[in-house]
Design a protein around this nucleic acid. Structure first.
Lengths: 245, 245
DNA sequence: GAGTGGTCTAGACCACAAT
DNA sequence: TTGTGGTCTAGACCACTCC
């Protein structure tokens, strides 16, 4: 029954996995755009020639991965990058009160450059490949909280550097809206480092002050490394929180 | 149908949630011990008067929370605290090579004391309540990697202090085996701090060296805060890794 | 009221482990 | 061979959204 649909792969895996992969490919290909409501479970079941329960299992797995959002009574929506998702999935800095808010941003520089060794390794490109670098300071509760250097491959983000200081605070929403690149997951490596003189000036602390350095590599729907960012964060009025479940 | 079983709560929630809570209570009460194989899905379905699918949904949710481990062909096992689980669920320090290994431990002190303000707040007890403190240095690849102060309520862990320097490396396995306390989840707060003189001596670095401070509060099956630990970690040869999915 | 996903059931067959 | 969990199906009813 599954062989009828062209995009199902031949190798044996559970049906719902194959459906899941087929649907994910259609998301990545732009067949359905962020915010769109997918066909209903019954419609998809018909299309793929499987039962509704199998479609359901595929969609539930995709919802767990934040690829889609399910709404009872309304339908299944292709996930969008809004403030809420940025906060819950990607922003782990909490204030002293245990609350978190998205930081505001002041862009200091946005320009093309050649990838250095770290950037090249993280983005999976050759050293010297053209990238765009965005350097900004981020404030929390009107206090400078972190410096941040965002690096993306220039090829994937044409003309991004022309935005200059107009690069928006919600940058993943920009990636998705302007470049059709949906960040799906990321890995963060955390280090304790000493503030250099630039950090110190921007954050208004003494050089040598311990900072939490966060090196994030973000991956899109097609499993491409699309962003590398290094944040250096004061932990006097905030901290990084991780739940081990 | 659901009212027949005594431990199902009356308030309305989906059946599988009620089953889930009932089963979790039986785990917490010691009705089934770690390592034991639960009754089969069909047996549980009969006992609770629901269908096998409902039991399955409850067990799958519990497996996702690491309360049980499912083995096709063998049965559903009550989760145990072994090295593997310690590593995958609770230990987030990776080496330069991207690998992780459980660190070894050298216990420096293990004694009773009165809870200070931080400990009391984290453990949800009054300041001055008796606790046991375990102070140790942990090595990775034969190099000192972190200092660690573990604090637990003395009431929950009687005579723990008598172990002295014999406190084992795999401490959650000890909690479970000797005190029937199963750590289920934890929250970690991360800070960048400067090494004090004691840290510096133990870790063989200069005072003031930036260290990654990890403050963990661990919670057991009954949602009691059973452990507070503060680790101060060098990030020269290792880092903290977090996957954002 | 029509249509969606959420829950619940019942039954079939498969993959795997233990014996 | 027996029993377990894993997959897949089919159908019922409920809760919710939207028109």
């Amino acid at each position: 029954m599954s062989a009828e649909h062209p995009s199902l792969t031949p190798a044996y895996r559970p049906l719902y996995q194959q459906i899941r992969e087929a649907l994910t490919r259609r998301l990545a290909s732009g067949d359905w755009s962020p915010g769109v409501i997918l066909p209903s479970e019954t419609a998809l079941a018909q299309e793929y020639g499987v039962s509704q329960g199998t479609i359901r299992k595929a969609l539930d797995a995709m919802a767990a991965d934040h690829l889609v959002v399910r709404h009872q009574g309304r339908g299944t929506e292709v996930a969008r990058h809004n403030d809420e998702r940025s906060l819950f999935q990607f922003f782990h800095i909490y204030g002293e009160d245990g609350q978190r808010r998205l930081p505001t941003s002041r862009v200091l520089r946005c320009s093309r450059a050649k990838a250095n060794r770290d950037e090249a390794a993280a983005l999976n490109v050759h050293k010297g490949t053209m990238v765009v670098r965005i350097y900004r300071v981020r404030d929390l509760n009107e206090r400078p909280a972190m410096t941040e250097l965002v690096t993306v491959p220039a090829e994937l983000f044409p003309d991004l550097e022309l935005l200059g200081k107009e690069v928006p605070n919600a940058i993943y929403e920009l990636y998705q809206r302007r470049y059709a690149i949906s960040v799906q997951r990321a890995v963060e490596q955390l280090y304790a480092v000493a503030a250099n003189s630039k950090d110190a000036t921007l954050l208004n602390v003494q050089p040598g002050t311990p900072l939490l350095e966060i090196r994030r590599t973000a991956v899109d729907l097609e499993n491409r490394s699309v962003e590398y960012r290094v944040s250096r964060c004061l932990t006097r009025h905030q901290h990084y929180l991780n739940e081990l479940v």
